[in-house]
């Protein structure tokens, strides 16, 4: 079957079978290696992308079901916007160490920041509870997100 969706601002037309997950198609057909396999259970958050602006675990999303949507990963073109802001703050605070969980995590952060959310540190922690990071202990991640949330209104 054929599916069509926007991926990072480009039209993607893929020939797929019903069982293929969005993760498999993004990686194996579209070469989007920034989307990671981490658990296959929708639990770790490494495979998260934005589907119509909402963070979804691509490993438990069938590709056929995202036909006609607009999908974004951390590599989405971003005329200095929320992605760039987040990347910059994550780098400045060392919100990544091994970096494996980072693209998925940033997708969820993007959704929060772009919605203009201003959350407390604990609320940020709760909002990110679907992402496991094993290196940073989360503290630097919360620093980065908190700062991005503070800066975003001045940019947008």
């Amino acid at each position: 079957m054929q599916v069509e969706f926007q991926f990072n601002d480009e039209r993607a037309i893929c020939d797929i079978a019903g069982h293929e997950t969005l993760l498999a198609v993004l990686r194996d057909k579209l070469g989007a290696m920034e989307v990671k396999y981490g658990c296959g259970e929708g639990a770790c958050g490494s495979c998260v992308v934005l589907v119509d602006g909402n963070p979804l675990a691509s490993c438990i999303t069938l590709c056929a079901s995202v036909d006609g949507t607009d999908i974004m990963s951390v590599k989405a073109p971003d005329p200095p916007g929320a992605w760039a802001l987040l990347k910059d703050r994550f780098a400045a605070h060392e919100g990544a160490q091994c970096g494996f969980c980072t693209p998925g995590l940033l997708a969820s952060c993007f959704a929060l920041v772009q919605r203009g959310e201003k959350l407390t540190r604990q609320e940020i922690r709760e909002a990110l509870s679907g992402h496991l990071c094993r290196c940073t202990g989360y503290h630097h991640i919360v620093d980065a997100v908190e700062e991005a949330m503070a800066i975003w209104p001045t940019m947008s």
Binding site: M33, E94, C98, F100
Partner: peptide, 21 residues
Amino acid sequence: KGVIREDVRKKVAGEVLYSAD
């Protein structure tokens, strides 16, 4: 100095190809 690691810049941009990639 708390310098920004270049590998971190690459990682947050999703530009690093790990072993499975």
